[in-house]
Design a protein around this nucleic acid. Structure first.
Length: 279
DNA sequence: GACCAGGTGCCAG
DNA sequence: CTGGCACATGGT
């Protein structure tokens, strides 16, 4: 595939590969030395060489916003917990940024995430895009299917995309959004607990998925999704039993206003190294 | 084949 | 509030 005219942009504290592979978005395609990415309906090619980014001319602003170049990583790193596991996570994930995702795409993909590995979530996302998403000129990847497109399907169609028991939730949620039972844009102005409450009314969205959506699509950088990995990590740090909700509150106290960032580094580090904090 | 994966919903105690 | 169970699918 031909690579369009490019320009160089300096990016500080940014690691493209880590960011794209850390279980936030699930569609990015390796192409040549870089990646093809779709920010909602806008495709772009991006390639990293040290501090420099090769990006398509005219897409600089969109890319800066998508990858949250405005997040103050230096500040976040200073406030990082000082225990050895967190320090190791910081070093092995430095440059990982929380992506600003389209709201509906984030809701949809994380409804398909329960009890699935990252690679499976990716397969499901790509199948849904392939079958039900709009083609985007100049992009290998289709757009994420709209709520209307999914709302028109049968549960069987979604099960055929290997969603399993998650099909019912995605269909129900697509219909709720299509019928305007919930307005994913309007709730963005509410305080975090109220956004979470609204999201949790959707079928297939519980506390963990809601926190993923808050972190990745509503800029709530203090939101901590407690999955099996984070659960085990926090349990080891806290050194005593507790429910996921207890662990989430513990992490809020311990990690502060950027707890979601800390969580993402711990998650990615544990996953790639297959290690946990020492008991 | 068992075991596990970025859980949720529902039910009992 | 907590614990227990069913729910699909694919990879070690």
């Amino acid at each position: 595939m031909a690579i369009p005219p490019c320009c160089k942009v300096r990016a500080r504290e940014f690691d493209l590969k880590r960011t794209l592979e850390s279980g936030q978005v699930f569609h990015a395609m390796p192409v040549g030395k870089g990646w093809q990415v779709l920010a909602d309906r806008t495709p772009f090619y991006i390639e990293q060489d040290g501090e420099w980014l090769l990006v398509e001319e005219g897409r600089e602003e969109l890319i800066a916003r998508y990858f949250s170049f405005d997040h103050p990583l230096e500040v976040i790193y200073e406030e990082f917990p000082k225990d050895s596991f967190s320090t190791a996570a910081l070093h092995s994930c430095r440059g990982l940024r929380i992506i600003r995702q389209p709201r509906w795409e984030c809701v949809g993909t994380f409804i398909t995430s329960p009890m699935k590995q990252v690679s499976h979530i990716r397969q499901i996302s790509l199948t849904l895009r392939e079958r039900y998403g709009k083609k985007v000129p100049g992009s290998l990847i289709n757009a994420y299917p709209t709520p209307d497109a999914l709302a028109a399907l049968k549960e069987e169609d979604l099960r055929d995309c290997k969603l399993g028991f998650r099909a019912k939730g995605l269909l129900g949620t697509a219909r709720a959004v299509a019928e305007e039972t919930i307005d994913l844009e309007a709730i963005a102005s509410l305080p975090t607990p109220e956004v979470r409450k609204a999201l949790c009314t959707l079928p297939g969205v519980g506390r963990k998925v809601a926190n993923c959506i808050l972190l990745f699509a509503y800029e709530r950088l203090d939101a901590v999704p407690v999955d099996v990995w984070i659960g085990r990590i926090l349990l080891a740090m806290r050194k005593r039993k507790g429910s996921n909700l207890t662990l989430e509150k513990y992490s809020a106290r311990k990690f502060g206003i950027y707890a979601g960032y800390v969580q993402q580094y711990l998650f990615h580090h544990a996953r790639i190294t297959k290690t946990l904090p020492a008991a």
